[in-house]
Design a protein around this nucleic acid. Structure first.
Lengths: 102, 102
DNA sequence: GAGCTTGTTCGACGATTGTCGAACATGGGT
DNA sequence: ACCCATGTTCGACAATCGTCGAACAAGCTC
């Protein structure tokens, strides 16, 4: 299985921003933010697993996450260091903002 | 004429991010970034004026810009201070990144 | 008032996006 | 070998988005 994990600097900024501009994906990023690996199946955000798989693909191809395959499960982690180096503050903007206004 | 210019904290982060996740709008923001007011018509980015008007509306309703009406022309400016206070680093991420990778 | 300039609004269109169930692939267990 | 668990991929669908030309609105100038 080939996983497409682009270099962050090769991803257009608009693609990174677009990847973060979705509620479900932002929830995934929030869950990933404290660090460590999470199994894909551990994300329970009220969408089907097809949809979840789609969102994880968007995040990965935008250079936001990295995925490790172990047997049948896949572990995802945030590329925080790279993100913070290339776009300092961007991640924090999405993380610290209230999920919903007010 | 009523212009809808929401409080920034009342705008979902995803809306702010989505507003920035477009090439034309990012070019507008870049042009606005140095400061000062720009007439709407001063943006020449290869789109029709209908499309430009649409993008400026998206930016305004996402809380990114403020518009002053003077006669038949409208002057737009970036809400930089508010943006930087609420989402430090977010604007810079979009501004400092190369328009196109490489 | 006539005409020009600036900008918005109104369909319309094609493309993209988020969502799902179903089918498929893969790698354990027993 | 068979089943089960974990994920991906494949249509399909509705909704949203970016785009345009045409029509409209409002204000300036002569």
């Amino acid at each position: 299985m080939e996983l497409h994990e682009p270099e962050l600097r090769e991803v257009p900024v608009t693609a990174v921003l677009a990847a973060l501009a979705d509620d479900v994906r932002l929830q995934i990023v929030r869950a990933l933010a404290p660090g460590g690996e999470h199994a894909c199946g551990s994300f329970e955000f009220g969408v089907s697993k097809a949809t979840r798989s789609h969102h994880l693909k968007v995040l990965r191809e935008a250079g936001l996450t990295r995925t490790r395959i172990a047997g049948t499960t896949r572990y995802v982690r945030l590329r925080r260091d790279e993100l913070d180096r290339l776009y300092p503050g961007l991640l924090d903007a999405g993380l610290t903002a209230p999920a919903r206004p007010q």
